[in-house]
């Protein structure tokens, strides 16, 4: 018998002839109780609490906010479909990933990366990237030491269930909650290990 068959057999034996699967009570909160502005306030509060930098702006201020967030950055990585309207005020050099993918060395040599996101979750201060428009492949937001992420108000979900329900399970997802951190030394959280040590979130509120 091969390993697969044997393991499946073992598990069937262990369970006996009629295992009962209990019903799952789902009485936890699922709906977003908060309205849009309250969600944004909560998101900002939680992001700041976990040491992300946050800028709030109106739709017509995105380019200026991006440029300010990137002050001092001379080489910026951006995914292929980054809206020109985000970049118009940024004076440095933009290196675009694609059609030829950037090498790891090129990513490592950039001062920052600018992306959008798929969803943000207010209650946990999380942004989720799924490789969709203006997000690019996963390495882009990992290797550069500074990640600037534009979140629009319609992307903000209140809690984890509401956030997850907006996502496509089979896309490669990255949930980001604050800059890279560790709790490995005396169980205290310290920011800044292997992932980007600076996370700057630009929250675009309705105009």
């Amino acid at each position: 018998m091969n390993a697969r068959e044997e393991i499946l057999n073992r598990l069937r034996t262990a369970l006996g002839p009629a295992p009962t699967a209990p019903r799952v009570p789902r009485e936890y909160r699922v709906d977003d109780a908060l309205d849009g502005p309250a969600r944004i306030d909560l998101l900002v509060d939680r992001l700041v609490d976990y040491k992300a930098e946050v800028t709030r702006c109106r739709p017509d201020e995105v380019a200026a906010s991006v440029a300010t967030a990137l002050a001092g950055v001379t080489r910026l990585v951006a995914p292929a479909e980054t809206p020109e309207s985000w970049l118009s005020a940024y004076p440095g050099k933009v290196v675009t990933d694609g059609p030829q993918p950037l090498s790891v060395a090129e990513l490592d040599g950039a001062g920052a990366v600018l992306t959008g996101c798929a969803v943000a979750i207010a209650e946990t201060g999380t942004i989720v990237l799924d490789g969709g428009p203006a997000q690019g492949r996963r390495a882009l937001t990992l290797v550069p030491d500074h990640h600037v992420c534009v979140v629009t108000s319609d992307q903000v979900a209140g809690g984890v269930p509401a956030g997850l329900r907006r996502l496509t399970p089979t896309r490669p997802l990255t949930f980001i909650s604050g800059p890279s951190a560790t709790s490995d030394i005396e169980l205290n959280r310290v920011e800044g290990v292997h992932g980007p040590r600076r996370l700057h979130v630009i929250v675009v509120e309705p105009g």
């Binding site: 939680r46 209650e123 946990t124 201060g125 492949r137 996963r138 896309r171 490669p172 997802l173 992932g195």
Partner: peptide
């Protein structure tokens, strides 16, 4: 586990994604 609302990074992947990972 770490007493955080959310850990800094969670990754999910489903098999192979062309051009990514």
């Amino acid at each position: 586990s770490t007493g955080e609302r959310m850990n800094p990074y969670t990754s999910t992947w489903t098999g192979v994604t062309a051009g990514d990972g």
